[in-house]
Amino acid sequence: MTAVTETAPAAPPASGLVATLRHARHVIGENPVTGLSFGLFALFLIGAVIGPWIVPYDPLESDTAQALQAPTWAHWFGTDQVGRDIFSRVVVATRLDMEIAIFSVALVFVVGGLAGVAAGYFGGWTDRIVGRLGDTIMAFPLFVLAMGIVAALGNTVTNIVIATAIVNFPLYARIARSEANIRREAGFVQAARLTGNSEMRTVLTQIVPNILPIMMVQMSLTMGYAILNAAGLSFIGLGVRPPTPEWGIMVAEGAAFIVSGEWWIALFPGLALMLAVFCFNLMGDGLRDIIDPQRRT
């Protein structure tokens, strides 16, 4: 062997999961904003998973003797017009709002992402159909379209999920399309063709994993939008119905009382909504850094 080995840059030879976790810790520690957003997210997750068991009151139990009380030590966030504990309702509502957001984003990620990748990679008719479908959806005011879909399909949580997914479809399809299009002729994609991968395999093993980082940012951003959308639909009376605890409904109910000085009914669920959207928006960049191997230097 005549070859001379050149020196390698120093890098720790760590294996898959350990390296990912270590890298995640680094990313979260490096940027306090990322750390804050992940902390908030963990808080929301805890609320969603064990919320119903840790809250001090039954979120549905009304106690008219205690109605419309300002925040006290007994009722941290006060009580509403029928005497339900607002703190308990805000915490319990986390699960429903998170479910709607996560399911709708997962749905649109799979459907919109794959449609966009196919459009960008194969071009031609696939591209035209996916593109025009996206244009059609974008032609409507998105919230009005979501309202229409829920009104037409029926007033259920499943339909809120579907409507939120549909209005987000063009965003995902367009991003995935342009990212796939850039990489269609990349060297490693050509190399994959040479090593005998079928077109389908090439798309799934070469293109899709490489556009995940940017899709991750998009997912995080739309997660916030999905929560707002669901709350918005409930606010105007579509989707989730009272007395189910849900942030949008609670804000809607509380709105009527602000004029008479009972600000806490609308404020606290609104604050939870705001924090959730804020948290998802901030999380995007951190997620991208964790998932992108190029950042692991």
Partner: peptide, 9 residues
């Protein structure tokens, strides 16, 4: 291009 021809993932 050896860089571009390897899948970064």
């Amino acid at each position: 291009d050896p860089t571009e021809s390897l899948n970064p993932r």
